[in-house]
Design a protein around this nucleic acid. Structure first.
Lengths: 131, 131
DNA sequence: CTCTTTCCTACTATGTCAATAGGTTTTACT
DNA sequence: AGTAAAACCTATTGACATAGTAGGAAAGAG
């Protein structure tokens, strides 16, 4: 299940792509258009700035804008940043996950295959594919 | 993320498939082989019985066994029973989910497409494919 | 110097996850 | 009848994540 964080982040990115005229877009406007609590979006957008997806500017005339061209973002990188991982199981999400049953695990190959399908799907989906 | 409930259920099914000689398999044995708390497995197998995946028998010589041939189970039905849904978002998981933005939602088509990929992957994967 | 906007810390309610605890009932075997 | 093994049942718990809310501090344009 993708959480609201991931879903809202995606909608913020789409909103920014649709209002990508070079100016900063105030969060207030995004929150109103998307009907999402501005306060909650603050938390989300902060992570998006930290993650290098967008840039913020304080003060009057400030707001947020994309750092790259809309077609240069993939849905995968947005979701993965917000969700932490797209992997279906902990043993694939964590590089350091230590499972004593790893060698004999009958289900691991399936999770690996599925993980790749998910990864491929979202990383081949550009932000602009949704517009 | 697939929870332990789904993952453990799958491992119980595989264990039952590997010990499918017509006799009931005690949960104690499964718990030991799989290195999972028997107490926790009780909760899980109870749901599996209720969901029609397996059948239980009380008393000495009792335990659990498969209701169908191993090749007649799909991973999808097992996971969906335990997880409640395999859908990535609530608006697809719930038939009655009421979203006012449904018509204009830019992300819904993607979630739908992804949902189908996930569904197809797990429902085309037979339990015996993992053995 | 004021208004707008981001930025920051903290708090909270609710729910889910992953169990544990302690029994009762059912059944086969002796 | 008695006993051991097994499922079955109800309740509880600790930890964590989710989805926010609250209140203000700092930045920056006009």
């Amino acid at each position: 299940m993708i959480s609201t964080k991931g879903r809202y982040a995606l909608r913020v990115m789409l909103d920014l792509a649709q209002n990508n005229d070079g100016n900063y877009v105030p969060l207030k406007d995004i929150a109103e258009r998307q009907e999402i609590s501005k306060k909650y979006l603050e938390i989300i957008v902060k992570e998006m700035v930290a993650g290098g997806l967008i840039v913020g500017a304080s003060g009057k005339g400030g707001g947020y804008k994309l750092l790259r061209k809309p077609e240069e973002y993939t849905v995968g990188e947005i979701l993965e940043l917000m969700e932490g991982t797209l992997s279906p199981v902990a043993c694939l999400a964590d590089k350091d996950f230590d499972c004593s049953r790893r060698k004999e695990c009958l289900t691991l190959p399936m999770w690996k295959e599925f993980d790749e399908i998910v990864h491929n799907y979202f990383y081949n989906k550009k932000l602009t594919d949704l517009l």
